[in-house]
Design a protein around this nucleic acid. Sequence first.
DNA 1: CCCCCTTCGTAAGCTTTACTAACAAACATG
DNA 2: CATGTTTGTTAGTAAAGCTTACGAAGGGGG
Lengths: 393, 393
Amino acid sequence: MARSRASFLSQRIAGSAGRPLRPNAKVLPEHARGHNRALVLQTLFTAGQQSRADVARSTGLTRVTVSDLVTELMAEALLVETGQRDVPRPGKPAILLDIDRSAFQIVGIDLSDSEVFRGAVLDLGGTILRRVELAIAGTVGEAALEQLFSLIESLLATVTAPLLGIGVGSPGIVDLAGTVVSAPNLHWTGLPLRAELSERFGVPVVVANDANAAVLAEHSYGDAQGDLMLVRVGRGVGAGLLLGGTLLHGSRFAAGEIGHVVVGTDGGELCSCGKHGCLETWLAAPRLEAKLGEAKRDPDPAASRTIILREAGTRLGIALAPIVGALNLGEVVLSGPDSLLGGSFIAAALETIRGRTMDRFHGGLALRLSTLGDDIVLRGAAVMVISSRLGVS
Amino acid sequence: MARSRASFLSQRIAGSAGRPLRPNAKVLPEHARGHNRALVLQTLFTAGQQSRADVARSTGLTRVTVSDLVTELMAEALLVETGQRDVPRPGKPAILLDIDRSAFQIVGIDLSDSEVFRGAVLDLGGTILRRVELAIAGTVGEAALEQLFSLIESLLATVTAPLLGIGVGSPGIVDLAGTVVSAPNLHWTGLPLRAELSERFGVPVVVANDANAAVLAEHSYGDAQGDLMLVRVGRGVGAGLLLGGTLLHGSRFAAGEIGHVVVGTDGGELCSCGKHGCLETWLAAPRLEAKLGEAKRDPDPAASRTIILREAGTRLGIALAPIVGALNLGEVVLSGPDSLLGGSFIAAALETIRGRTMDRFHGGLALRLSTLGDDIVLRGAAVMVISSRLGVS
DNA sequence: CCCCCTTCGTAAGCTTTACTAACAAACATG
DNA sequence: CATGTTTGTTAGTAAAGCTTACGAAGGGGG
């Protein structure tokens, strides 16, 4: 039963709510159906429990059409009736619907850490049900791929509901087909990861850059709007950009790769890439921690710490100001170790951006830390699967 | 007859090819129809003369459906049969179709110049049929609006085919409803320009920021791809961003407003906005020309000129590098006086961007001057009308 | 020269989709 | 208790694109 549901679902063309299927593609009635289907799902996903009539009102579709779509979605076990509404109102009492968040499970993978591969089983609501971590200890290339296989296998063994798919957030450059064009840390080049995983495990797989996964998670589970930039500070510095609710990929799938942009006009340390003053030289976590370590021997360690963090935050602000200006971003979210990014760092970054952009346009800019912590990529990977399979985000 | 055609068209829901109508909106069969209709038009627009069977093959629609859509489009006079294909091929000879570029005319307006309001009548192919310029000599506010009215009136008097609509490229911030939120030079604030023009002239009107209009023109008539940034250098500095074929608007409709982003970490001249070192202080045309004027008295005027232009180009590069990096732009186009932007300026800008970004991702960046000259906004304004009315770009 | 094959455009009928109209069920309220 | 309201469903309709089939119009081989 569970299997048949899953396989039925895999044959559906799930149009993504709001977005078109493909540019320059014809639209058939069944595409419209898929779109409206996803729209119903999206409505219930974001607004929670609602009756068919409620959904009809908020989507603009008729009650009849909504009923029809709901019947279909209930047959796939995506929706369940959760009983009558208990608020007394005139008229026939409404039967409430909700997404059955336990109907399917998703395997999410985060390959961005330099020490461990993280994996988790999640439900449709993005809740992490189980985690597995695998220390990689410098494993690279084919061996790292084998590690990934075994990580996924151990997760699949614990799945207790039909599997919707596997989502992977990988470091490096990932193209639209899910091929890891290059991930230097893992020594992967042109690895068709999506295809390999999909073939090996026989389920739909989505692979994307870790920062892109993260920005999707922030959009879905943080309270972020449609235009959003998420900056990840870790071993390196990278970003994901969501513009108009859509991920930006860039001409070579390298959008968000800001770690090696030179910041300022006053030199800077030598970077591994050969340039001086790259963003990473100013604020990658290892470099920052090294500087903070040295500062502990200073006469006033706390003051030195503040100075170092303010300097790093300022540099981030200098790099972000033209981007915030050009895109007129309303919100930028930082993801990384709170101990580094909170406090002086983020304050200095915001001051700098404000001081270098036009207040009238960007005074309302929100710069904040992500609340999703270390799970951000895992949860983003799940969002990718949910979004691609159900058209819900 | 002509009138009836135009009014029929105005009632159509012209879905935009490739893009959806609205996010989070239901899709009805008639929306699909509009989309496919636009798709046929788009195919003929870009590929030129084709038979119904050709269109069917390249769109994926069946010959039957294409025939039906073509019948409709011919009834609206948008398409015409241009005779049989003369290349001998087996089978029944094909009847070629083409867009009748003279079937409708468009009024395009460029308000971005500080000296004159420019207007033109264009055909569907974007060819300028007639121009009118009106010196404004510092006119602002209500009086400037009256000037605009009379400019449009004089253009409308010369229109010789049904009018598809009026497109306006305005300086300042323009929201999605076509309201000029603020245009300091014209002293306009919260002016509902689209609504006023539409009511006054009784035709569809589209209003957008001049740089946004320009980037659309470059996309349609230059050979630009889907991801494109167009930087306009004139009295100020502004940009338009086309990402994934869609204009970026930003959280406060101020996307592309990079003129007052501070460049570099070494001070700079005082800007009218109160900050030091804004991009405009480095390369707005009046400032550059003033510097070049002074340089004429130097011992080696040519060398001084080169130094000044290289410095300005370098500053543009410093500002653009983070943007190019974050968006992984493949193409940036400059629009402005060739005498300033060509040569040393653009060369220095490109070198700077290259030197400050990762070569592997951005080595292929194309930085070039627009070939559309002073007509770029006029033609962009026409593109906006064509795109919004016919779904063609 | 004739027949076969190919290609083009169109007709007729079918399937899908969402709509309108109408109705029974179930409850609140005066 | 009658009335009005809201919900969800049934029946029938309109729009859109599809498949199947066919006549028209030409090229090429025997």
